[in-house]
Amino acid sequence: MVELIGKQVAAILGWTGAVFVFGVRALREAVRPPFELRELTRQVFEVGWRSLPLIVAAGLAIGVVLSMHTRASLERFGAEALIPGGLALALVRETGPLVTGLLLAGRVGAGIGAELGAMRVTEQIDALEATAVDSFKYLVVTRILACMIALPILTTVMNFTGIIGGFLAETVITGMSFRLYFHRAFSLVEMTDYVPATLKTMVFGFIIGTVASYLGYTTEQGTEGVGRASTRSVVLASILIIVCNVVLVKMTFFVFPEAAG
């Protein structure tokens, strides 16, 4: 029994170590030429642009829901004027980054895991190598970078569509003007809430890209393995994002103590 647990722990640690080394290797490769700009563009398009509808829809919905919740609790204190500010603060600090991260882990993590898995199984990765292309650089680095580029942008989009969603919910009830709502929304948000929270999603992007690429790139056992890579990408990337978020928030508080207020 102890031995079994020991083996499990060793497996988890080993896996984590392998993913970490994989990711670090990707970052190191990323700064060495040649830069696969064409493929990077394609991946940013796939990861970022194609995720926009999902993010916009989710952002609007979250904005509306958050607005309704904050209204319910703030109304009790007669503090309706704080609704835009409270909503924006919740979005910018945590909801926006985390929800974007998890949504992307679902959409993109699964996609990358499956795509690279299929390419490995059908020897496309070998074909790339045989064509004298560094498949790691071409496939893995570009995807991780694309995720790291796309996530802060998508988070920003999520934040703003969330505020717009909140505005829609608010204007239906009180008829508040967008200008006023927008101004109030930023009345409580500080630089230390906004910038670190947005930039930390680059870490989420790194996690999504690395985990999914690793699982896809190292797929074995044929088609079955592709499906597994896809599913595990989503699950593991999501868990890692949530866990990492705790550390990142703690770090933000450490570096910017005023963000903890």
């Binding site: 563009t41 940013v44 398009f45 970022g48 642009w49 926009l52 910018v92 580029i149 796309a150 802060p152 942008i153 998508l154 920003t156 989009v157 934040n159 703003f160 927008f182 101004h183 929304a185 930023f186 948000v189 500080e190 630089m191 906004y194 910038v195 947005t198």
Partner: peptide, 20 residues
């Protein structure tokens, strides 16, 4: 599309910075 995505995102982010 990528240009619009990156530039639009940067501008949106900048709007937030500006508001604060």
């Amino acid at each position: 599309g990528v240009g619009a995505f990156v530039l639009g995102g940067a501008i949106l982010f900048a709007v937030g910075l500006f508001m604060i």
